[in-house]
Computed example of a mutant assay.
Amino acid sequence: MSTQDANTQSLTLVQAVRDGLYGEMERDEDVVVMGEDVGKNGGVFRATQGLHEEFGDDRVIDTPLAEAGIVGTAIGMAAYGLRPVPEMQFSGFMYPAFDQIVSHAARLRNRSRGRYNCPLTVRAPYGGGIRAPEHHSESKEAFYVHEAGLKVVVPSTPKETKGLLTAAIRDPDPVIFLEPKLIYRSFREEVPDDPYTVELGEAKVRREGADVSVFTWGAMTRPTVEAAEELAEEGIDAEVIDLRTLSPMDTDTIVESFKKTGRATVVHEAPKTGGLAGEIIATIQEEVLLYQEAPVTRVTGFDVPYPLYALEDYYLPEPARIKDGIREAVEF
């Protein structure tokens, strides 16, 4: 990614989504945005605000409340040369479209023996922390990581959101782009005006350290870095890795970090059972077992339906609980 001498503006994460969409729609007339209320209303979180006025009905399409129809239509558009970017209002509403995503979008290249690609980017606000009911707050990224043929991206900063979204739209294969709505408007960052990409499949070291590797993504990145900074005052030097792309996962960075530290903690807001922490731990066992100094700890959500408001803060990993998990790995 090259952004030297570029003009920038201070954007929130959701504004970076809109900026990324605008840049690709301006650059490539085959990029089409579609979904429930994405047109004149600008989307439930205003991620598409102003795009309808700029690009018109043919490229910013308000759809019925029918997720299976939205994604199914987008797959057909993608197969015949367009680059549709359908928005699901919340990731918990994607389940009616699950069959279209895993049975058709993910398999189109293989099924057609390469005759067709499916350059489709399904965007969805995901995760908890905004006091919404259960279907508006779930973290089910593991569903999509499990499916061969899909790429799964979860950004954590405005600048990288724009670059990752741009890369996803340009990618020849289907991408599930999960936007952590807890941090949609929680902070700003300087974002280059011109289009740029952040390569899919590469993790980012958010904090270098020597004692323990901490792997996380999305909205959990900031509290994890905060916990690491606080632990530094106790003499624990934690390295924080933001995976950014969950499929394909950057196992090289995971392995190299663990070789250095010999200890690890995984932080995610999804439920513990079947969560991606288990996959990361299995990778460590398979690739770098002889470097391991302690059991890998997990700091996650719980194996229950997403709770309502009074318990939401307890459900999500926060710095105090993350620090306990890191200490457990270090003090074993």
Rank of each mutant, 00 (worst) to 15 (best):
P133N: 06
A167G: 12
R111N: 03
R123Y: 08
G149Y: 04
D211C: 11
Y126K: 01
N117Y: 03
V175C: 09
D194M: 11
G129R: 00
F215Q: 00
I183D: 10
H146W: 02
E138R: 01
S186Y: 06
G127N: 09
S112Y: 06
L120R: 01
P158R: 15
P192C: 14
L150A: 07
L182H: 06
F177I: 14
E160C: 02
K151W: 04
R113D: 04
G127K: 03
S137G: 10
R170A: 09
G209P: 06
G129N: 05
E160F: 04
L200M: 10
P119M: 09
V205S: 05
A106G: 07
H104T: 13
E147Y: 03
R170G: 04
K181F: 11
F187E: 13
L120S: 08
K162G: 06
P172G: 09
R113A: 08
G201L: 12
F187T: 13
Y184P: 02
L108K: 00
S186L: 06
V152F: 02
G201A: 11
N117D: 13
S139C: 15
S112C: 09
H104G: 04
E160N: 08
A210I: 07
P158G: 12
V145F: 08
H135D: 10
V198R: 01
Y184N: 07
D193W: 07
D193P: 00
P119R: 01
